[in-house]
Every structure is written in C-alpha cells, then in structure tokens.
Simulated scan of single mutants.
Amino acid sequence: MNLIIQTIIGNLQTLKQQQQITTQKVDTVCLQWFEADRRIIRTTTNDGREIAFRLLKEGQRLHHDDVVYLDKQLAIVVQIEPSEVMVLSPQTLAEMARACYEIGNKHTPLFLDGNELLLPFDKPLFEWLQAAGFAPTRQQRQLSEQLRANSAPGVGGSHTHSHSYEFAEHHHH
C-alpha cells in the first residue's frame, strides 16, 4: 500500500474525543522536527507502510499527533521524535521579548511550548545564551510548534537581509 498524504485530518486526541478514532489500529510515522515543514516527504510507517506526503498548502506543517490517514481499520499518526534542545524559561514579558529578539537576529528556528522557548541545540548559541543571562537548559524534547515570522519563505518572496553592524558585548558580573 503506497499512500499519498495531501491533508492533515486532525489531532489524535480530538478525533478520539469525537469518537472518529475508536477501534482502528494506530500506525505511527516518525519524523524529525526539521522534516515537519517539508512539502514532500517519502517515508515508512512503524508497521512498514510506504507513504509519501505531498502537502500543497502554503505554510502547512506537520505536528506531533497529527492524524494523516483514517479509515475504518487504520489511523496513521505523526510522531515528532524528541531531539536535543535548548530550553529558555523567560520570567517576564520583557525577558521573553528580549530572548525572541536576540534569537530572531540569529535566524535560528524557535519553538514555543507553554511559556518556554525551545531551540535546536547549538553549542555556540547555548554558550552565548548563558553569557547573555538567559540560563538555558539542555533537554530532550519534541519541537512541534514553530514560531513563524510574517515573511515565511515562499510567501511574497524570501526573507533576506544583511547585518553589517556589530554589537559590543556587555558582561554583567
């Protein structure tokens, strides 16, 4: 069975609550966080079904627990694999704003989980965040809810600019 997935049906928990998923066998397709916004993915489910994602909607992204196939016997569900991440827990709105601004300047993917900011682990950035006073922690987590700028790639041209200025580093002791 070679399935071509073109839409996301819904969230696993929601579909269970609505009793659209009751006795179906649940097969999972495991993806890394960076695969979740690819428009074309060819992969195999845990039970060995070959599937291809062909997501045509602009800005469509796969999330953990997305149901991508559903019939009377089978539900295929996306699982975003945990990866090594940096976790920031800003305590104030001002700290959150400063963190997002500084991270945005580095063009690093940024994810939101409750009141925490998650970023793919990067040693130089981790050390920079420590020096800047953000107290990041290193954890294994799922990166699923990526924050997006208004100028998402492919929508009205790509986001490019250069930073030709330098900042003096401030160290607080």
Score class of each variant (00 low, 15 high):
residue 1 M to I: 13
residue 1 M to N: 13
residue 3 L to H: 08
residue 7 T to L: 04
residue 7 T to Y: 00
residue 7 T to P: 05
residue 9 I to W: 03
residue 10 G to R: 00
residue 11 N to M: 01
residue 13 Q to G: 12
residue 13 Q to H: 09
residue 16 K to N: 12
residue 18 Q to D: 15
residue 19 Q to Y: 02
residue 19 Q to E: 14
residue 20 Q to T: 07
residue 20 Q to W: 01
residue 21 I to T: 10
residue 22 T to L: 04
residue 24 Q to D: 14
residue 27 D to G: 05
residue 32 Q to K: 10
residue 32 Q to T: 14
residue 33 W to Q: 10
residue 33 W to H: 13
residue 33 W to F: 15
residue 35 E to W: 03
residue 36 A to C: 15
residue 39 R to P: 13
residue 39 R to W: 04
residue 40 I to R: 05
residue 43 T to N: 09
residue 44 T to H: 04
residue 44 T to W: 03
residue 47 D to H: 07
residue 48 G to L: 05
residue 48 G to W: 00
residue 48 G to N: 08
residue 49 R to M: 09
residue 49 R to V: 12
residue 50 E to G: 09
residue 50 E to H: 06
residue 51 I to M: 03
residue 51 I to C: 05
residue 52 A to D: 09
residue 53 F to M: 05
residue 53 F to V: 09
residue 53 F to S: 06
residue 54 R to M: 14
residue 55 L to C: 09
residue 55 L to R: 11
residue 56 L to I: 06
residue 64 H to Y: 02
residue 64 H to V: 06
residue 64 H to C: 06
residue 65 D to G: 01
residue 66 D to N: 14
residue 72 K to S: 15
residue 72 K to R: 06
residue 73 Q to Y: 03
residue 75 A to V: 12
residue 75 A to L: 07
residue 76 I to F: 03
residue 76 I to T: 05
residue 77 V to L: 02
residue 77 V to Y: 01
residue 79 Q to L: 05
residue 80 I to N: 02
residue 80 I to H: 01
residue 80 I to P: 04
residue 81 E to S: 14
residue 81 E to Q: 14
residue 82 P to S: 11
residue 85 V to W: 02
residue 88 L to I: 08
residue 93 L to P: 13
residue 93 L to M: 07
residue 94 A to K: 10
residue 94 A to N: 12
residue 95 E to P: 05
residue 95 E to G: 09
residue 95 E to W: 00
residue 99 A to S: 09
residue 99 A to P: 05
residue 100 C to D: 00
residue 101 Y to S: 15
residue 103 I to A: 05
residue 104 G to Y: 00
residue 107 H to Y: 10
residue 107 H to W: 04
residue 109 P to T: 06
residue 110 L to T: 13
residue 110 L to E: 02
residue 110 L to F: 11
residue 113 D to E: 15
residue 114 G to Q: 13
residue 114 G to C: 09
residue 115 N to D: 15
residue 116 E to Y: 00
residue 116 E to L: 07
residue 116 E to C: 13
residue 119 L to M: 13
residue 119 L to V: 11
residue 120 P to N: 05
residue 120 P to F: 03
residue 120 P to G: 11
residue 121 F to V: 13
residue 124 P to Q: 01
residue 126 F to V: 02
residue 128 W to V: 11
residue 130 Q to G: 12
residue 131 A to M: 06
residue 131 A to R: 09
residue 132 A to N: 12
residue 134 F to I: 06
residue 134 F to D: 08
residue 135 A to D: 14
residue 139 Q to Y: 00
residue 139 Q to G: 06
residue 141 R to I: 04
residue 141 R to W: 04
residue 141 R to E: 15
residue 144 S to I: 12
residue 145 E to R: 04
residue 146 Q to Y: 01
residue 148 R to P: 03
residue 153 P to K: 00
residue 154 G to C: 03
residue 155 V to C: 06
residue 155 V to D: 09
residue 156 G to W: 00
residue 156 G to L: 10
residue 157 G to I: 15
residue 158 S to E: 10
residue 158 S to N: 13
residue 160 T to I: 08
residue 161 H to L: 03
residue 162 S to G: 05
residue 163 H to C: 08
residue 163 H to I: 14
residue 163 H to F: 03
residue 164 S to M: 04
residue 165 Y to Q: 08
residue 168 A to Q: 09
residue 168 A to V: 11
residue 168 A to G: 10
residue 173 H to A: 11
